[in-house]
Design a protein around this nucleic acid. Structure first.
Lengths: 197, 197, 197, 197
DNA sequence: AATGAATGAGTATTCATTCAT
DNA sequence: GATGAATGAATACTCATTCAT
């Protein structure tokens, strides 16, 4: 009966969905959620406005998906740094270098920053994001603790230091969003230096 | 009319204008520019919508004024730190402590962050903000240079260190916007510690 | 402070609201709810689209108000017929003649008919309308009962006869909506004749 | 292809077409034309959206077919009543009983009522429906005339009485659409009683 | 100057219709 | 023929801005 290949259809659907999220991430990161029109997302994704709604119920759902995927991706990334078979310094170096240049790093950072701080975002979402943010600090705190044990990192509460280090990275990333003029050419070692004794 | 009245009128006008900007700063910092309605600003300021337009030509003008005042205020603040008759450490302590708790610190930070990074903001504004931001790093760089001369701060390009320190503060401030749950109780000394040798 | 006359403002507001309802009643009665655009209502009322929303939260709220007012108006009307100092025949005559030609009779009938029968209307509304409809049959049943006591009307359950009579009127009214060609020139006596022995 | 297959194909096509109309009739009768989506019709008919368009050019064509079939069905039905080898009372009884309970009676009534009264329907359609409605009153008028000749029905213009009787039935049917709570249990004899002397 | 009602352009979302498979 | 993804025009609703009082 069906002239369609169910399996292929599903694959295409999944691809489309990713394609929309990818497009949405970049447009929203640059303009902010409320200033981004569905038409912007659609045209960035190269599809029609109506078709976006075949994959997501609303703009808010897209944002929610973006936030969740973003934090999941980040978690995977930071866990990977922790699991690295390397010195604490090298783990931190890898983290710093890669997140800074990572293709979606700045976009994820910008979106999560908005999700955490704007009252225009439903409170439940804000809370969930903050919670996961805190949770996602743990692997970083572990890396720092390792460095302290090894005697190379400054002493102090490793969790607090993780918060400081991550905040610094966020702050710096938000100063070098693509398209915005570069302020300084910071290299990972200059940032890590702050943690060194 | 007597000159006295003209003078008084002007004073009232200025007061009203500040009142609107004060209101706008707080609502915009919390919700973001596009999600903030003129009606929100008006009601926060305790005046009518129509009256807002007696003092500002448009929402964008309000935002522009906010951004300019914010950066001017910040400049005054950081210059004051530099001029302090104190050790580099104490200057930095004063800066850190006061900006963190300064009543508008977080609001100014949030607004400038939006002004710098959103493509929804006219490019000219973004550029002007970035330029002034860089310029405003100089007093901070000077403080750090003093500390390096005194042998207490880490070596390195003082301007880059200033950028890092300010970014860190911004990142941290954006994690502790009023109303958002506190993540950690960071005290100035913990932050300054990073710069110490 | 206020350069406005609060009292007059309120009066104007009330007038506007009625004006919108009046316009909405006619447009919706002719086209049906879903086929009626807010723009249709606005232009019929001679105001802008945006202004409609200053008085009603949504199209559905307008519809709800219409339905409630319509049934209230009808109740007043049928009670008035019952209270008339006249014979049962004359009461029925007055009712029949006036509702048929009553300026909003057909519109109210058309709207209530939609409210009762379309599944596109929220179930709660449908239920409330049906309930009030049944309740509104009572005065008519009373008139018929009077006629039966007087020996001029046919015997039978007066409530059922009321339902039949009202349904007949509704059916006829829906055949002579303004703009639709007249099918026959029915006069009240021809309709009442059915109830006579 | 053998003629046999062509014939069979045509039969299948007709069946499918009826299936769609049957589905459309029920959903449209319940929700009204504009509130009914093609998707609703398709899913009720158990086929895909695209396939509906293999059998009908547009939603409006479906509606037109529905209206025409409905009036044709009704005509056949009322003619049958007239041809019955029975007394005028029994003919009317048969008509009343069967149309009330006839499986599509209410749906046809609801759809024709919309077709006649909504300005959202093309004027040509409205006109055609009204014309056929009037024409379809004739068999009913004939039955009534027979009853008058037989001396059992009230005197008066038989056409007008037909209009009244049919309107009454329509009104009552629109009060007992399936799913809507029953108001009263009217039996045919109670309705016919109105026409009796 | 102050008010808030009025305007209408702008945007999210829906849905009839088309089309590639 | 059959399917359902894709398209884009249409419409409810919002909100910056204007204006009469």
């Amino acid at each position: 009966m069906s002239p369609r290949n169910i399996e292929k259809d599903q694959r295409l659907r999944d691809e489309r969905q990713s394609q929309i999220l990818e497009a949405a991430m970049h447009v929203i990161a640059r303009r902010g959620l409320p200033a981004t029109k569905i038409a912007d997302i659609a045209s960035q994704a190269g599809i029609s406005v109506g078709n976006v709604y075949k994959y997501f119920l609303s703009k808010d759902q897209i944002f929610k998906a973006l936030v969740e995927n973003g934090q999941r991706e980040y978690r995977v990334f930071v866990e990977e740094a922790l699991q690295l078979n390397a010195s604490p310094y090298d783990k931190l170096y890898w983290y710093t270098e890669n997140w800074l240049v990572y293709r979606n790093g700045w976009a994820i950072t910008a979106i999560l920053q908005y999700a955490r701080t704007s009252e225009a975002v439903p409170h439940e979402v804000t809370l969930a994001v903050s919670e996961r943010f805190i949770d996602n600090l743990r692997p970083m705190a572990a890396i720092i603790a390792e460095g302290q044990t090894a005697g190379i990192f400054k002493n102090g509460d490793s969790f607090e230091l993780a918060l400081i280090y991550v905040s610094m990275m966020e702050g710096l990333i938000l100063h070098s969003i693509p398209g915005i003029q570069e302020i300084a050419t910071l290299t990972p070692d200059k940032m890590i230096a702050l943690l060194l004794k």
